[in-house]
Amino acid sequence: MRTAFEIVKAHYDANLRRDMDGMLADIAPDCRWTEMDGFPCVGTYVGPQEIFKNVFLALGQLFDGYTFTLERLLDAGNDVVAIGEYTGTSKQTGKPFKARVVHVWGVAQDKIRRFEQFTDTLRVAESMR
């Protein structure tokens, strides 16, 4: 059985490869994925299909070159904390942004059950105006 750290690391490794199937592979059907208030795709979405549609697809429609760069991954047992940076360019305005971000993951029974994002939503919003 893989550790929570290994499961979350596999998600980020898939992200680097631009492998959407790999990114969604370990997300549980009942996973609660929360994007921060003030972020373009704000809300809590349940399950891989809702997460894909309301987060990954939505961000691809709003931004060119939208990227998360992982700087540190911290092992806290069944919880994992990722620290990094978002970058991208608003398709509507052509303005780029860079924003610090923290992701908090909860893993149980070999699946991702929880995700919560904390980021500088102002930097993202500024690029969209």
Rank of each mutant, 00 (worst) to 15 (best):
R18C: 10
D13P: 01
E126Q: 15
T93P: 06
V81Q: 07
P96R: 01
K53N: 12
A10P: 03
Q117H: 02
V81H: 12
V102C: 13
R72E: 12
V104P: 08
K91C: 08
D21C: 10
Q49A: 13
W105I: 05
K95P: 06
E71K: 11
Q109T: 14
A14Y: 05
L57Q: 14
I83V: 10
A28C: 04
L62Q: 09
Y66A: 08
K53L: 12
V124S: 07
R17L: 11
D120V: 00
F52Y: 12
E6D: 15
L24Q: 10
V55N: 02
R2Q: 15
K53I: 11
R114N: 14
E35Y: 04
R18V: 11
V55F: 05
E116N: 08
R2C: 11
W105K: 09
H11T: 15
T87P: 04
E6F: 01
D79S: 10
L74R: 04
N15E: 13
L59G: 05
Q61M: 12
Y86A: 02
T34E: 11
L74V: 14
W33M: 05
A76F: 14
D64L: 05
S127P: 02
C41M: 10
P48R: 15
L57W: 15
K9R: 11
V107Q: 06
T121E: 09
R32Y: 01
K95V: 02
A25G: 06
I112F: 01
Q117G: 00
D75M: 12
L74I: 14
L62F: 09
G47H: 03
E85A: 00
K111W: 14
